[in-house]
Every structure is written in C-alpha cells, then in structure tokens.
Nucleic acid binder design. Structure first.
Length: 818
RNA sequence: GCCGAGGUGGUGUAAUUGGUAGACACGCAAGCUUGAGGUGCUUGUGGGCAUUUGCCUGUAGGGGUUCGAGUCCCCUCCUCGGCACCA
C-alpha cells in the first residue's frame, strides 16, 4: 500500500469542502477564536514566504478548533496597487483581468496546500463592493475633520509616477522600485493620524503579547519628544522666531539661532541684506544637495546678517541658515547650544562661533574649561543667571513656568510621526470620493452614489498626468450639492488604506455597512495575527489607527484590533526577501508535486521557529517525507494480525510508552499554544514515533496491541494540525467515522509524565564525574549514600575533606572538597 | 552614529527555570537489501588523545560571578534588523 499523497490530499480537500468544516458559525456555547494571517497581494503565484505564513496560521487554527474553539479563519486579497498596473502595461492586459486571474490561480494553490479557510468570507479589495467602503470610511473621516487636503512637498517616485508616503521611502529611494525619490509640491489628501499619536503610544501597554521589538520600532517611529517652544524676537524688527528644544535648561548656552533654508521667515530676514543673492544661491544649493543624497552632508551655513534676542538673558545672537536644520520637524528653527549638542558643536567649530558651557556634568569636576567635545548629559546649571545651581530637570520646570508667565513660549510635546498622505496619482486604487465644485468647493460624493467606480476603459500611459485625470468621462461630474458641473478628484488611495480595516470586513463581508457590527462584536478582536515582520510599522500602525477611528465613530468598542501578534521571519533566497521583481521567488508547486502538501507544510514549519528568518533551501524536505512514509508503512504493517503472541515482560515498555505519550501530548500542546515553536513540536512527534516503533515488537509480542493502537490514535490527533490529509487518511483506516477536525485535542495525564527513576549527576568540584539512577524525588541523604558507594567518587574523595554539598532534587549532587 | 536581536557540529537547529550541550532532522561514512542505481533498513558521526571501560577539550573572543554558565554581569569582534542631522 503506497502513500499516494496526491490522491489522499484531493480526497480530503473535497471532504472538508462538502462538510463545510471550516465555515465559522458563531454560537454561545464555544469560545471563539479569530485566527488571521496577513492577506496576500495577488502577484501571480504563492511563494515560500506565503507557505510559511499560512502554514503557521493553519496549524494554530486547526489546533484551536480541536481544543474546542469556534474558529474563524478567513482569507482574502490585497488586490489593488501598482504591480497590477505595471504588469498590465507590460502585457497589454487590464489590471483587473491580471489581478482576478492571479487571485484564481493563487486560491487554487492555497486550497491545494489544504489550508482551512472559511471561503464564504473571502474578499478582494479591488472589488467595488469592498472599495465602496474605503470611500464610505473616507467620507466619514472627512466629516470628522480626520481627512484634509493640503499642499505639501511630497516624495515623488519618477518611475512609479506617484507620491510615496514617508514610510515608503527607504534610504531616499522608492521602497518598490528603488528609483531615487525627488521632492514635488502637490495638493494631497492626508489622514490625521497625528491626532492619535499619543494614544497609539500609550495603548502599546495593552499589547503585552506583542514582540517587544515591534513595539520599540513603533515607538521610534512615532517619536514622542517632550520639550519647549521658545519665542526669540528678532532684533530691530517685529519678527519672531519660534524654536523647539528638548533642552530648555541649556538656553543660556545658546550662542546662535539656526534656520532651515525653507523657513518661512528667511525671505523677510534677508530682504535688506546686501548679500541677499548669495544667500539665496546658498539656500538653493543646500536644497539641491539634500535632494541628491539622504546621507547627512557636511554641515554648512550662512549668516543672515540679523540677530535674535535670547528671551532669558536678553543677549543678542546671530541668526544663521544651516543645512542641518529640518523644516519638517519642530518649527524649522533651532537655538544652537554648541557646548551641549554635537551638531551645534561641529557647526560652531567650523564657523568659529562661541561655545559656552552652562551644564556641569553630574560626575566629575565643577571646572569650566575649554571643551573638546559637546557634553550632552544632563547636570547642574552654571552661568545661567538665577537658574544656576539647579539640576537640569528643575531648571526645565522653572524655565517652563517663566515661559508661560511671560507668554514667550510654552512646554510642548512634539512627534516625529506625520499625517498619513494617502493620495496616489495612479489608476489601480480606490478613487477618493470627492468633487470640486466651482461654487461649493470641496464636496464629498453623496453616500448613495458610492461606490465611485474605476472606469474600465482607460489609457494607463497618458503622456502627462495620471490615467484618471486624463479620462474626462470620469473626471467630469456634477456637484452632489448643487448639481452644477464639477470635477472629480482623480487621485486614488494608498493601498495601505485598504488593508488597515479588512479584518473587520471578514465579519460580515456582504454587510451594507463597512462591516456587520454584531458579527464584529462576536468575532473581534483578532486572537492571533500572523505576518511578516516587515509590516511592523506601516500596516500595523495604520490598522491600529483606523480601529481607533472606528471606535470613535461608535462602530466598535475595540481600541486594539490585534492583542496578539506573531511576527514571522522572512523567507529569503540569496539573502533577500522573495519578490517577483527580484526574480528570486521559489514556487512551492514542484515540491508539492514531488512530496505532497503535507510534507511541504511539515518541512517549512520544521526548518526553524516561526519568528526567525529562514534562508530557503530544500535540503531536508526528504527527511519530512521519510517521516510520513515511515508512519504510513508502520501503520499498515501494525494493523496486520500478529502471528504469534508470546508472553514477555511488557511492564517496562508499557510504562515507558505511556509516559512518553503523555509527555509528547504536553510538549506538542504547549509548543503550539504558548511558544508557537512548531519546529520543536514536530521534533517531539518524530521522537515519539521513533520510540514507539522501536518498542512495537516487544509490545506486540506481549499482547499490548491495544496500547499501540491508542498511541497511534493519539499521534494522529497530534499530527492533524500539521499534516491534516495524511492524519485523516490513517484515522479513517482505523475505522473512525468522525474526521479529525471534529475530534477533541488529547489531554495528558499529569501523573503519567514522570519516570519512576531519574539519573542524578554527581559533581566533584564543579565537574560531572558520575551519575546514579535513583527513585524519583529521592531525598538528599539517600542520594549521598548512593553517591558515596560509587568507586569513582570514592577515589576522587580519598584523603580529601568535603567542604560542602549542594543537592538539587532529581538533578544533581555537587560535592566540594579540598 | 544611536537602538534592538543574534553568534552553538559540515548544515537547519534543540537545550522553556543557572544544573547531563548538540534533542529532532539534513549531510556524510560503513554495512545489510538490490543484477545495478534509487528506495528501505542497521550502525557511527563536535574536536583531540587513548582506542577497551577511558581522559582532555568544546556554545564568536577575553575577563568575572557561582559548587555549577550556551544561559547571569563587564569588555572586544562579527552578522542581521530598525532609525538616522528629529534639535
């Protein structure tokens, strides 16, 4: 009887389908479990990264189902976005046709892997039925002031011919195509994620089950920074410069002000200057340089000829323009304290500006001497007027009060996080549902007119402008308010918008609202969310943001959608993530054909723990295949009647197999549930089977066929989440009526996991010298007596004095002698 | 530069609480099976020495704490990930 995996796998996939095994139907009797893996972009074929991600999720959801939970395990498609458009241009197809055929193909691949999804809940973000709700949500956000339009300098990818979010610019290059990103001024739609900056940070506390690395990355990204805004009047003028600093305590050490070249007051400041032209040329030059390279350039600056007044000391200080001051952080102006800031120090050295120490470090002398380096630590103030002698923290507090009293500034917290720019000048995305009316201005599309559909016939490569902009049938519309002629917004949404709420839509995928609120109350939050660590910031922050917005709309009580996160390490080939554009995609199909889906699942999980990165290599697949093959053969052999039964001494074998079995149940259960270490769960199953097959002959001869059978049954249950077709096939061969998905997960007997005897190590002076076998929980006196009987130990201790002994029950006895 | 994770056989990795390092596999070697190959099975497999039972050594390198360290502490090196003039 051969292990015909192809036949078996097709058979069981059909059975599951007919039995509706994976349909999630809510009931009050069972605890619910929402298992979600990040939905894929339908790029064409699944690759090993998908196989890994979805195998992990499938094991967990099948395990939870057997544990008695009502499991919801949905799947869908992140189906809008640029690759479809690029592929369409290349192959002269429509993006929709390309996308839908990819979805059809990939869905077959997923089904062939035996993943158990509730396909009734399948969704694709490119369907008007889905993106209608993107538009609906957008309009609701617009009404609440959470979406707004502003002109801003944006990151422009000349190759993708669209805007990129800050997050999508990596090292000054486009995250997708690696082209150099340039700056461009455009009117853009933004979502006010900054309104939630504080909460996104503080509710990290609710995410204790998240990897701390991800929380840290998000914290850095949000970049909260507490400090003060101080107004510096410009001497001989009405102008004022607002400066942000986190080190208000160092303000007496400020010796110049530095402005970004893009600071709005630069023009006013240099108007009268005879060297205006040179300064303007300089500003131009540093802007060009910063566009060319994102690397910090050599510090450069130019004096504006004007002075500012320190509101604390009344001292005048020069105002410079400097290339290291960012316009889009703080106010674009800084007070420079060279003694206590490395960047200011470097700049001051170069242009010979004064360096004045005002902080004495905690440790080490009170001497104020020439500095060779900036000292950035907090300390005690000196040369700071009435604040001298205070600690940095005290000074910040008192100075803050002074600012407020004199109305020359205030304590302030700022964030690195910016509002989320969602406008994209491309076709294959959700049309932003607003109209521009000459009389009414910006008017959201009427809800009854949603969805604003993407036109099917479209020129994807207009000579200039975006495809929708050039499609006059689309762009021309009537104003939803006054019915006069109006122009439609022709930008589409960033696809991260689509994926920031899809997990709600699975609860009610055909609801006539973004999602069915009752169903959502039942199923959400997501009990475990599994996906690539590469989404640690973007997707996960956006999803947290949108969930909080939904809560504030009163649509849900939930503030955090993913209390549990499992970040899967990337599957790489040649050191980089598999992607179609890199051409290093490993297709699982040939492996499935050769070994079957069960082997492929087992292998990808066995190769490493889920959170670790994995450089792809198929050496070792054989081992997993052999494992299944051996079980298969064992089964068929063992099910035959035993020719002769001789009474032997079965007691030991029976006892040991019993213990091993209970230990294996415990290990596999805990590895899946608590640690997600599926690799060691599989290793434990292999170990158990090795043990069982080694003892089978003995057990059979002693008439313990019943025990073998029991062991095999339990093993199949434990194997079921990993290799469900295989396990079910053998289960059926045992004459079982129910399928394994309907069986309860086995429990272990806590009294059956300890052996009767244990090995206790005997150490002499820190080195293991011998071991003795004693009864479990044997006390110290007994172990000492036994240890002293050992020849080796006697020899080692001969003529020596025992200084002390340390006894660890069931582990070791450590003897210290001299 | 800053922050984080990590470095264990020829390879993937295991050791969950400071207590037998290398489980489970891959690969390799020898043997059995076979007409041959593949499959399957058995045995061996960190390094060194003795080769029989044994001894020494070993978790990137160096130091430390401890009866005992892969695990804890300090320093150095390397790899990966994130951030990067964030005032």
């Amino acid at each position: 009887m051969n292990y015909n995996f192809a036949e078996i796998e097709a058979k069981w996939q059909e059975i599951w389908q007919n039995k509706l095994t994976f349909n999630a139907v809510f009931n009050d009797q069972q605890k619910k479990f929402y298992c979600l893996e990040m939905f894929p972009y339908p790029s064409g074929k699944i690759h090993m990264g998908h196989v890994r991600n979805y195998s992990i999720g499938d094991v967990i959801s099948r395990f939870k189902r057997m544990k008695g939970h009502q499991v919801i395990h949905p799947m869908g498609w992140d189906a809008l976005g640029l690759p479809a458009e690029n592929a369409a241009i290349k192959h002269k197809l429509h993006p929709e046709d390309w996308t839908l055929s990819n979805i059809a193909f990939m869905k077959k691949q997923l089904q062939r892997m035996g993943f158990g999804y509730d396909w009734r809940r399948e969704l694709a973000t490119c369907s008007p039925e889905y993106y209608k709700w993107n538009q609906y949500i957008f309009i609701k956000m617009l009404e609440k002031g959470l979406a707004y339009k502003k002109k801003s300098e944006v990151n422009w990818c000349p190759s993708c011919r669209t805007v990129l979010a800050n997050e999508q610019v990596v090292d000054g290059k486009c995250w997708r195509c690696d082209s150099a990103v340039s700056a461009k001024d455009l009117e853009q739609w933004f979502l006010k994620i900054t309104a939630y900056a504080e909460e996104l940070l503080s509710t990290h506390a609710e995410l204790s089950q998240w990897p701390s690395k991800v929380i840290l990355m998000q914290q850095n990204w949000i970049g909260k920074s507490q400090g003060a805004e101080v107004i510096f009047p410009v001497a001989d003028s009405e102008l004022e410069l607002k400066v942000f600093t986190t080190r208000l305590d160092t303000i007496f050490g400020a010796t110049f002000i530095a402005l970004s070249g893009k600071h709005p007051l630069v023009g006013d400041l240099i108007r009268e200057n005879r060297e205006r032209k040179e300064i303007e040329a300089f500003i131009n030059q540093i802007e060009q340089e910063s566009k060319l390279s994102r690397e910090p350039a050599e510090k450069k600056g130019m004096y504006t000829g004007r002075q500012a007044v320190n509101p604390f000391s009344g001292e005048k200080m020069p105002i410079w323009i400097a290339n290291f001051v960012l316009m889009d952080y703080g106010s674009g102006a800084i007070m420079s304290v060279p003694a206590h800031d490395e960047r200011d120090f470097e700049f001051a050295r170069k242009y010979d500006l004064p360096i004045r120490q005002v902080i004495l470090p905690e440790a080490g002398g009170n001497e104020v001497g020439p500095l060779t380096d900036a000292t950035c630590e907090k300390g005690t103030l000196t040369a700071s007027g009435e604040y001298s002698g205070l600690s940095s923290d005290q000074a910040c507090e008192h100075m803050g009060e002074f600012l407020a009293r004199e109305k020359i500034g205030q304590l302030k917290t700022i964030f690195r996080l910016r509002d989320w720019g969602i406008s994209r000048q491309r076709y294959w995305g959700t049309p932003i549902p607003v109209c521009y009316c000459p009389d009414c201005g910006i008017v959201p599309e009427a809800l009854k007119n949603l969805p604003v559909r993407l036109p099917k016939n479209i020129d994807l490569t207009p000579a200039d402008g975006s495809p929708l902009e050039k499609d006059s049938a689309f762009a021309k519309t009537i104003c939803p308010r006054c019915s006069g002629p109006a122009r439609r917004e022709t930008d589409t949404m960033d696809t991260f918008f689509d994926s920031s709420w899809y997990f709600f839509r699975y609860a009610g995928p055909s609801a006539s609202l973004p999602f069915d609120r009752d169903e959502a109350r039942q199923w959400l939050p997501v009990d475990i969310y599994i996906g690539g660590v590469e989404h640690a910031i973007l997707h996960l922050i956006y999803s947290r943001f949108i969930s909080k917005v939904f809560r504030d709309f009163g649509w849900t009580d939930l503030s955090e959608p993913f209390p549990n996160l499992l970040t899967q390490g990337m599957v790489t080939l040649g050191g980089s993530a598999m992607s179609k554009s890199r051409g290093n995609v490993v297709d699982p199909d040939p492996l499935i054909e050769k070994y079957g889906a069960d082997t492929v699942r087992l292998f990808i999980l066995f190769a490493a723990p889920p959170d670790k990165g994995l450089e792809w290599s198929d050496s070792g697949v054989e081992g997993c295949y052999r494992f299944l093959q051996r079980i298969w053969n064992f089964f068929h052999k063992t099910l035959q009647p035993v020719p002769e039964v001789k009474p032997g001494d079965p007691v030991v074998a029976v006892k040991e197999i019993g213990i091993k079995l209970n230990r294996t149940i415990k290990k596999v259960s805990e590895d899946i549930e608590k640690r997600f270490h599926l690799n060691t769960a599989i290793a434990a199953l292999m170990e158990f089977f090795n043990d069982l097959s080694a003892r089978t002959e003995q057990l059979k001869r002693s008439g313990n066929d019943g025990l073998i059978l029991e062991a095999m049954e339990t093993m199949l249950k434990l194997l079921a989440p990993f290799t469900p077709h295989f396990a079910n096939e053998l289960w059926e061969k045992l004459g079982k009526q129910q399928i394994l998905e309907e069986m309860p997960w086995p429990d272990f007997d806590p009294d059956q996991i300890f052996e009767e005897t244990v090995n206790v190590m005997i150490q002499v002076n820190g080195k293991i010298k011998d071991k003795i076998s004693v009864a479990i929980d044997c006390d110290e006196e007994e172990v000492k007596r036994e240890a002293m009987k050992c020849e080796k130990i006697k020899q080692l201790l001969a003529g020596r004095q025992i200084v002390k002994m340390i006894f660890i029950k069931n582990k070791m006895l450590s003897i210290v002698s001299k």
